[in-house]
C-alpha cells in the first residue's frame, strides 16, 4: 500500500517535470533568447552602455552586477569560513613565536635571487590586470589570484613570519572583506545617486563614472581575493 502510494506520488511529480523539460528550448539552439537578443545587444552596445571596452567585464560587473555581487559575497564568506576553521584547529598547539622556518631544506640562493628579481614584474603585471580589466582581458579575480601567487612565492623565500608581519592581522581582516565591501559601497552610492541598488550611470556624459566604478570594484575584488588566498596559505603553512 505504502509502496503503491510512493510510486503514484512519484509519477504525479514526474509528469509535470518531464512536461516542463519538454517545453524548454533545445540546448544550444541558435533560436533561444540568449542568442537572438541578448548576445548581439551586449556585443554591440556593451562598450557605450556599460562603460568598459572589455565586454566580459561589462557583463559580469554591470549587466549581471547583482549576480556577481551575490557570488562574491558567497565566495568570500566561504573563504573566511575556511580561514576560521583552519585558525581554530591551530589554537591548540601554539608554537613559540619567532622560530625560523623549520623546513628540511634551507632556501637556495639562486631561487631566492630569481624570485626577488621577478617579483616586482609579477606585481606590476597584477596591478596592470587589476586596473585595466575594463580594456584588456583580466579584472579583479585574475589579479587577485596573481597577487596571491606572488605572496605565496615570497613567503616561501623570506619565511612566513616575516611575510606575515607585512600585513598585520587587523588590516588583513579589513582586506579580506574588501570585495563584498566595495560592491556594497558602489551599490549603495548607486542607490543614492541613481535611485537603485547597483545602478550605473546611463547618460552620455557620465560614462566615466561607470568606468571608474568598474575599476573600483576590480580593485576591491583583487585586493580581497589576494588577501583571503594569502591568509589561507599563511594559516595552513604554520610549521612549514
Amino acid at each position: 500500500m505504502k509502496r503503491a502510494l510512493t510510486v503514484a506520488l512519484l509519477v504525479v511529480v514526474a509528469i509535470p517535470l518531464l512536461y516542463a523539460v519538454a517545453q524548454l528550448p533545445q540546448h544550444g539552439s541558435p533560436m533561444t533568447p540568449p542568442y537572438t537578443h541578448i548576445s548581439p545587444r551586449y556585443l554591440e552596445k556593451g562598450p557605450e552602455e556599460a562603460g568598459a571596452e572589455n565586454i566580459v567585464t561589462d557583463v559580469i560587473l554591470n549587466y549581471r552586477g547583482f549576480d556577481t555581487n551575490g557570488e562574491v559575497t558567497v565566495i568570500f564568506t566561504s573563504l573566511a569560513a575556511v580561514c576560521a576553521v583552519l585558525l581554530g584547529s591551530r589554537k591548540g598547539d601554539e608554537r613559540p613565536a619567532g622560530e625560523p622556518s623549520s623546513s628540511a631544506v634551507p632556501v637556495s640562493d639562486v631561487v631566492s635571487f630569481v624570485v626577488r628579481l621577478l617579483s616586482p614584474l609579477i606585481a606590476i603585471f597584477a596591478v596592470y590586470v587589476m586596473l585595466f580589466g575594463h580594456i584588456s582581458p583580466g579584472g579583479g579575480f585574475q589579479s587577485g589570484a596573481i597577487l596571491a601567487a606572488l605572496v605565496i612565492v615570497t613567503t616561501v623565500i623570506v619565511g612566513r613570519k616575516q611575510a606575515e608581519a607585512l600585513v598585520p592581522v587587523r588590516i588583513r581582516r579589513l582586506l579580506q572583506v574588501a570585495a563584498p565591501l566595495t560592491f556594497f559601497v558602489v551599490g549603495v552610492s548607486g542607490l543614492f545617486l541613481f535611485g537603485d541598488y547597483l545602478a550605473y550611470p546611463k547618460t552620455e556624459g557620465q560614462m566615466w563614472l561607470a568606468t571608474a566604478w568598474l575599476i573600483v570594484i576590480g580593485i576591491g575584488i583583487g585586493v580581497g581575493g589576494a588577501a583571503v588566498l594569502a591568509s589561507i596559505f599563511w594559516t595552513m603553512g604554520d610549521d612549514s
Partner: peptide
C-alpha cells in the same frame, strides 16, 4: 583569455600550493 588567466593563476598556481601545504601537514 580572461578565464584562461584565472585558470592558470588559480588552478595551476595557488591551488597547487595549497594542496602541497595540506599534504605536507
Amino acid at each position: 583569455p580572461d578565464v584562461a588567466m584565472t585558470e592558470a593563476a588559480v588552478g595551476a598556481g595557488v591551488t597547487s600550493a595549497l594542496f602541497l601545504v595540506a599534504i605536507s601537514k
